[in-house]
């Protein structure tokens, strides 16, 4: 199973998470978002970039609760809440946003 971006093949697992984290690119993110029926806006990118920074620093994809709390702290309560995050990523902010960000599935997420 693989995504194809600019003629390049990027492998993913059966749920769509890419196998090799270093394969990620913005173009690939757009491609994954399409398969999730998400049109990437600046607001989506803000969350995806936040997740990538979080992973870079702590080497984990945070649980939803932790993600929302961290977003609240960094961007304020109008963004750090369930409603806003689920509007951007209806099938679960941690799950969908992590997939688009090229990270593994959050630990403990089933």
């Amino acid at each position: 199973m693989a995504y194809e971006v600019n003629g390049q093949v990027v492998e993913h697992d059966e749920e769509g998470y890419i196998t090799n984290l270093s394969d990620w690119s913005r173009e690939l993110a757009e491609e994954i978002a399409k398969t999730e029926n998400i049109e990437m806006t600046d607001e989506h990118w803000e969350v995806v970039n936040f997740l990538r920074d979080y992973y870079e620093e702590y080497q984990i994809a945070p649980a939803v609760r932790v993600l929302i709390k961290a977003i609240k702290k960094s961007m304020g309560p109008e963004k750090g809440n369930n409603k806003y995050m689920y509007e951007l990523f209806p099938y679960g902010p941690a799950k969908q946003a992590c997939k688009i960000a090229g990270l593994p599935k959050p630990t403990g997420c089933v």
């Binding site: 979080y54 620093e57 702590y58 080497q59 984990i60 945070p62 649980a63 932790v66 709390k69 961290a70």
Partner: peptide, 14 residues
């Protein structure tokens, strides 16, 4: 192997 020592610093968020 993955260096998981930075993850201890995320525990406060949890």
């Amino acid at each position: 192997v993955k260096n998981f020592s930075p993850t201890f610093r995320a525990l406060g968020d949890y």
